[in-house]
Deep mutational scan, measured.
Amino acid sequence: KLPPGWEKRMFRSNGTVYYFNHITNASQFERPSG
């Protein structure tokens, strides 16, 4: 389970998975720990 605010997303163009935090508007490719 991801830390609060984080969700898994995917770029439609190339299928790359990334993680987005809707609380802080942060995004990263590494899976957030917590």
Rank of each mutant, 00 (worst) to 15 (best):
K1F: 09
K1S: 11
K1I: 11
K1W: 12
K1P: 13
L2A: 01
L2C: 00
L2Y: 04
L2D: 15
L2T: 02
P3A: 04
P3G: 03
P3L: 04
P3V: 02
P4V: 07
P4Q: 06
P4N: 11
P4T: 05
P4Y: 12
P4F: 11
P4S: 07
P4A: 10
G5T: 00
G5Y: 04
G5N: 06
G5P: 11
G5K: 01
G5S: 02
G5M: 02
W6D: 03
W6H: 02
W6F: 00
W6P: 00
E7T: 08
E7K: 05
E7W: 04
E7M: 01
E7R: 01
E7F: 05
K8G: 04
K8N: 01
K8E: 15
K8F: 11
K8M: 14
K8A: 10
R9V: 07
R9H: 08
R9W: 03
R9A: 05
R9Q: 05
R9P: 04
R9Y: 08
M10H: 13
M10Q: 12
M10P: 09
M10W: 14
M10Y: 15
F11K: 12
F11E: 13
F11Q: 10
F11I: 13
F11H: 14
F11P: 03
R12F: 13
R12D: 15
R12T: 14
R12W: 13
R12Y: 14
R12L: 15
S13H: 14
S13G: 13
S13W: 14
S13N: 13
N14V: 04
N14D: 15
N14P: 03
N14F: 00
N14T: 14
N14I: 04
N14M: 01
N14K: 05
N14Y: 09
N14G: 09
N14A: 14
N14H: 10
G15S: 04
G15D: 03
G15M: 13
G15H: 11
G15T: 05
G15K: 06
G15F: 10
G15R: 05
T16G: 11
T16L: 14
T16I: 15
T16K: 14
T16Y: 15
T16Q: 13
T16S: 12
T16D: 06
T16P: 07
T16W: 09
T16F: 08
V17G: 04
V17P: 10
V17H: 07
V17W: 09
V17S: 04
V17I: 11
V17L: 02
V17N: 05
V17A: 08
Y18V: 03
Y18A: 00
Y18I: 07
Y19I: 01
Y19A: 00
Y19H: 04
Y19E: 01
F20V: 10
F20L: 01
F20R: 00
F20Y: 14
F20W: 08
F20G: 00
F20S: 02
N21Y: 06
N21L: 08
N21H: 04
N21Q: 02
N21W: 07
N21D: 04
H22A: 07
H22E: 08
H22I: 15
H22L: 13
H22S: 13
H22Y: 14
I23E: 09
I23G: 02
I23R: 05
I23T: 07
I23Q: 06
I23S: 05
T24F: 03
T24P: 03
T24M: 02
T24D: 05
T24R: 06
T24V: 03
N25I: 05
N25T: 07
N25Q: 12
N25E: 09
N25D: 06
A26P: 02
A26R: 12
A26N: 11
A26E: 13
A26S: 11
A26Q: 15
A26L: 13
S27H: 12
S27M: 15
S27L: 14
S27V: 15
S27E: 15
S27W: 15
Q28A: 07
Q28I: 05
Q28E: 04
Q28N: 03
Q28L: 06
Q28T: 10
F29S: 09
F29I: 13
F29K: 08
E30F: 06
E30G: 06
E30W: 07
E30I: 06
E30L: 08
E30N: 08
R31T: 08
R31N: 07
R31W: 13
R31P: 11
P32I: 04
P32M: 01
P32Q: 00
P32L: 00
P32E: 01
P32R: 00
P32H: 02
S33K: 10
S33L: 11
S33F: 11
S33H: 08
G34H: 12
G34C: 15
G34W: 15
G34F: 14
G34A: 12
G34E: 14
